[in-house]
């Protein structure tokens, strides 16, 4: 195992690592990411407090904006891309996301059904 810092072409990329670019290009990547992230954040905060859109659409819009911003962070800051040198990183990410969706989605689903099927606490107390 060598301690080389520059990986020869044709190798995999570590997460967070970019393909060989000049400094200017790399800085530009971060600037683009920052601008996109700030735009999405500003939109989120604007949407949350506005009366201009149909109110039930606001939660959906907030979730979509959040997922979009996470994508921007992954691509421009963490440099997780779909290139062939990134396969292992993307596969690990996909598995992580699977677990996240199972945990969050499953919890919300089950607990909502429990709440709907169970009478309030004072009724249970009266039944005893």
């Amino acid at each position: 195992m060598s301690d080389q810092t520059h990986i020869p072409a044709g190798h995999d990329l570590a997460p967070g690592e970019e393909e060989q670019h000049g400094v200017g290009e790399r800085i530009l990547g971060y600037v683009v990411g920052l601008v996109l992230a700030l735009l999405l954040t500003a939109t989120s905060f604007f949407i949350a407090g506005t009366d201009l859109v149909w109110q039930p659409s606001i939660p959906v819009a907030l979730i979509v904006l959040a997922i979009a911003q996470m994508g921007v962070h992954l691509v421009f800051f963490l440099h997780i891309t779909t290139g062939p040198d990134n396969t292992n990183n993307v596969l690990a990410l996909a598995f992580g996301l699977l677990v996240v969706f199972l945990v969050v989605g499953g919890t919300v689903w089950i607990m909502a059904h429990l709440n709907a099927n169970m009478p309030p606490m004072d009724q249970i107390m009266r039944m005893q």
């Binding site: 060598s2 301690d3 990986i7 190798h11 995999d12 570590a14 690990a92």
Partner: peptide, 25 residues
């Protein structure tokens, strides 16, 4: 084996994903 830089960062990436799973709870 892949260079140490890749192995280290990949292992840390796995840790970060498990941290994200913890946050999802």
């Amino acid at each position: 084996p892949a260079p140490k830089r890749i192995v280290t960062a990949y292992g840390f990436w796995i840790f970060l994903l498990s941290d994200i799973v913890m946050f999802s709870c």
